[in-house]
Amino acid sequence: MKVDLFDFELPPERIALRPARPRDAARMLVVPKEGPFEDRGVRDLPNLLRADDILVFNDTRVIPAQLEGRRGQARIGATLHKRIDLRRWQAFVRNAKRLRVGDVAEFGGGVTAIAEKRLADGSFVLHFEGDEPVEVLLERAGRMPLPPYIAGKRDTDERDREDYQTMFAAEDGAVAAPTAALHFTPELIAALERAGVGRETLTLHVGAGTFLPVKAEDTDDHAMHSEWGRIEPDMASRLNAARKAGGRVIAVGTTSLRLLESATDEGGVIHPFAGDTDIFITPGYRFRAVDGLMTNFHLPKSTLMMLVSALMGRERMMAAYEHAIANEYRFYSYGDSSLLLP
Rank of each mutant, 00 (worst) to 15 (best):
R161M: 10
F128T: 09
L99K: 03
G109D: 01
A223C: 13
L182A: 03
E132Y: 08
R98C: 04
A169D: 04
M167H: 02
K153C: 08
E200N: 04
S226Q: 09
H222T: 10
E200I: 05
A151C: 03
I114Q: 14
D172M: 04
P145N: 15
P148C: 07
T166L: 06
L119G: 03
I150W: 06
A120F: 12
P178N: 14
A115L: 13
A141L: 00
V93M: 13
G198F: 14
R100V: 06
W228D: 06
M224I: 06
Q165A: 06
P186A: 08
R94D: 09
L212A: 13
P148R: 12
V134W: 08
D155C: 07
A96Q: 13
L138I: 11
F211V: 04
M144W: 02
R199S: 14
A195E: 08
G152D: 14
R94M: 07
D121N: 09
G198R: 15
P147W: 00
F92Q: 09
V136L: 14
V197M: 11
F128E: 04
P148F: 10
K117P: 06
D163A: 06
V111E: 05
L99I: 11
R140S: 01
P178C: 10
R159E: 13
I150V: 14
T201S: 12
A113R: 15
T210H: 07
D103E: 12
G152K: 15
E129S: 15
D157F: 13
T156K: 06
E171G: 00
A176W: 00
D121H: 02
R94K: 09
D160W: 03
A190W: 01
A169E: 03
G198D: 12
T219F: 08
R100W: 13
R159D: 13
H222S: 11
E135R: 02
H222C: 10
A174P: 10
L119V: 00
P133M: 01
D121W: 04
L119S: 02
L126I: 05
L99G: 04
D218C: 03
D160S: 11
G209V: 11
G108M: 05
K117A: 09
F211G: 07
W89F: 14
A181I: 11
K215V: 05
T185V: 09
L138M: 10
G196S: 05
T203Q: 07
D157P: 10
K153G: 11
T210Y: 09
P133H: 00
